[in-house]
């Protein structure tokens, strides 16, 4: 028999540091769960009825109705056009924004203004921005185009600014020392260092725009989203199913295309 009794009880060290903290985290989580569910006004009866309705809904969705394919194709093409056009507009606008928002290239006031625009622009969901463009430009794809172009400009501008802030300063200094102008310094010293990453980001953004182009229509900003929400409100579920399948296919295709291009670029 050993002199020192070995402990017979062992528990793994807690993930959150100390055991008290671990317990506290669990207590908080459970407390939050109870509080949030209790205050959420969930209509339990309606929710339970939902399971029955779900079956009913799926029954009515099958088979999907592709008979009105002209309407479907029109909406899909419009979404795709909005996605492509907005990416192009966005990428052009993102260059001045990205330069303005790069600390190492821009004077302080310009930098602060550009960063402010980026923070504000990123905060609001595309759909919120879309409503405002609908108010300004009326219903239709123009509002969608402008929404996605704006969101792309903000996103690409932010990525560009971060890339520019991480470039090697030496070459930029060397190009400046040859007597090059600001534009030349950008084209020779900065652009080669950020171009390939930014191209990848742009392709990624095209993919994101394809996704978003399918939803801005819900508030009237053009594309397939409008057709979809209309079919839901008319309880036209077999057509809605056809639209959903088409959207999923388009989005999956967009993601595959984006991955393919970015893999080839490397």
């Amino acid at each position: 028999m050993s002199a020192v009794a070995a402990p017979t009880r062992w528990r793994p060290p807690p993930f959150f540091g100390t055991r008290t903290r671990q317990n506290l985290v669990w207590a908080l989580a459970i407390g939050y769960l109870v509080w949030s569910v209790a205050t959420l006004h969930i209509d339990t009866k309606r929710a339970l009825a939902g399971f029955g309705r779900a079956l009913d809904l799926f029954a009515r969705m099958i088979p999907p109705d592709f008979m009105r394919w002209e309407l479907l194709v029109k909406g899909m093409v419009e979404s795709l056009q909005m996605a492509i056009a907005s990416t192009l507009v966005g990428v052009v606008l993102s260059v001045p924004l990205g330069i303005a928002a790069a600390r190492n290239l821009s004077p302080k006031p310009v930098y602060v203004a550009a960063r402010g625009l980026i923070v504000a622009g990123r905060t609001f969901h595309e759909v919120i921005i879309a409503i405002f463009f609908v108010k300004l430009f009326g219903f239709g794809p123009v509002a969608g185009l402008l929404t996605l172009a704006f969101a792309s400009m903000i996103f690409l501008g932010k990525m560009l600014a971060e890339d520019i802030e991480n470039i090697r300063e030496g070459p930029v200094e060397a190009i400046r020392a040859t007597g090059a102008s600001f534009g030349q310094v950008f084209v020779y010293g900065v652009l080669p260092q950020v171009l390939s990453r930014q191209t990848g980001t742009t392709i990624y953004r095209l993919d994101a725009n394809v996704r978003h182009s399918t939803v801005v229509g819900i508030v009237g900003a053009g594309g397939i989203g409008h057709t979809l929400s209309a079919s839901f409100s008319r309880y036209d579920y077999d057509f809605a199913a056809a639209i959903l399948l088409s959207i999923a296919a388009l989005v999956a295709l967009g993601e595959w295309f984006s991955d393919w291009v970015r893999r080839r670029m490397r």
Partner: peptide
């Protein structure tokens, strides 16, 4: 320059 400061790409 010491670090040559060429544009690598």
């Amino acid at each position: 320059f010491q670090e040559f400061n060429l544009v690598d790409r």
